[in-house]
Design a protein around this nucleic acid. Structure first.
Lengths: 230, 230
DNA sequence: GCAAAAGTGTTAGGTGTACACCCATGA
DNA sequence: TCATGGGTGTACACCTAACACTTTTGC
């Protein structure tokens, strides 16, 4: 029996903790949950759960996200593993943290009631349990780095979005403002977006053209030696 | 007893796997080990070990590195966590991967004999056990990203290094060549190095001035809004 | 004295940045 | 018709990239 090779080694609880990030009204929000079990039941925390024997760690993260939000198939990325001996009050738990980027518009607010979660502006998050505040800090830091060099942030927008929306997103992430013309030139020159024929008229009377992100074009852009940066 | 909260949850073996990277003769090398225990004992693999109850995961990585190389206090960074159900042959093991950057000159080659390790050029590594080849691939990818935006690669050089050495290092990492004058201007303009008065005469008759990386100056540079890039 | 690597400035072209006006539309 | 946000082009400053010769010294 091969499984005896590692006998004598200790085993540990392994959990996943998940940040769900959304963008609305020029603000970044994170979905905060009330802890579902002891210790510290009812306190603010990330969405978390234990890894099950029949699923990979990545799969566990997807499952936990789905359990708390009903959302499937979203962009997720590992932030890191948190393994201090005493990080959990009750017992030693090694936790792998993830963040998920979702289109907040397609998120059903009623699910917040069901799962006891709420959206909190990312810079206004209060005390969370254990080391979750540190995880949040690390996540924001990674997010900012990713934003500069890869188009993952598009996951925060609906599939069809407008350039003013996109600009607003990046202005929020970088806490700055951009010149409209320069921003448009930069993004359009990459030739990774498709312009649609219809407009979004929710924000102005004239309406702004919709665009979609074109993965094929983006791959071409990379092959030609292009580097995404905004 | 608080530790009963999580009863009913599964526990897992948790290991750390560590890449040790060095730079010599214009080449990047990685320290490959012979696996010390079954299954696949004697096969090529990363330096690995199980996390112990009394140490954090990060501490386990440092310990494993030290056990295999005798080196303490080096730069280490988490690559990611590998948690596929069947990734290990014998039993489910969740592994957190790290890379370490060391000054290969200060590494005692005799330790390779003791611990059954050897330096392999990073692009010539053969088949490793389990998913270690994937871990290597991910590590190289992270390394390249880090190199562009932070001065961590200085850890691959001795404390006192020359500009030709530094240039050679970056040329190797990026698989390219730089113009000497442009490279010097760029790095010196950041004002993050200290020029020493003595020279390294091992590579030329004239000798090249030694420099050291100045952490204080680098912090100042960052505070002034500077962004490291080479 | 010569081979071999270290060190040094200038210029042209491209990239990023600043900037102001017209357009389309619903109310 | 007017208020609101969407859309467009140019000029200048800065930065990047290309380029060649002199210096030092051990042999």
């Amino acid at each position: 029996m091969t499984s005896s090779f590692y006998q004598g080694q200790e085993k540990y609880f392994v959990s996943v903790d998940c940040f769900c990030i959304g963008f609305k009204d020029s603000r970044l929000y994170v979905l905060i949950a009330k802890r579902k079990f002891e210790p510290l039941i009812g306190e603010d925390s990330l969405m978390g759960g234990f890894v099950r024997p029949d699923e990979s760690v990545d799969a566990a993260a997807s499952r936990v996200l789905s359990e708390y939000t009903g959302i499937e198939d979203v962009y997720m990325e590992q932030v890191g593993t948190y393994g201090e001996v005493e990080r959990d009050l009750a017992d030693r738990v090694i936790s792998i943290a993830y963040y998920a980027l979702i289109d907040i518009e397609s998120f059903n607010e009623e699910l917040c009631l069901v799962h006891n979660t709420r959206w909190v502006e990312i810079n206004q998050v209060g005390k969370l349990v254990f080391d979750h505040n540190k995880i949040l800090k690390d996540t924001i830091s990674i997010l900012e780095k990713r934003a500069t060099s890869s188009p993952v942030m598009f996951n925060l927008l609906p599939e069809k979005f407008t350039l003013p929306q996109l600009q607003s997103l990046y202005e929020t992430i970088y806490s700055t403002t951009f010149d409209k013309r320069n921003f448009r030139k930069k993004i359009l020159d990459m030739n990774i977006l498709d312009k649609k024929e219809d407009k979004d008229k929710s924000a102005s009377k004239r309406g702004a053209f919709y665009y979609t992100f074109d993965t094929e074009k983006y791959n071409l852009f990379l092959q030609k030696g292009g580097h995404f940066s905004l």
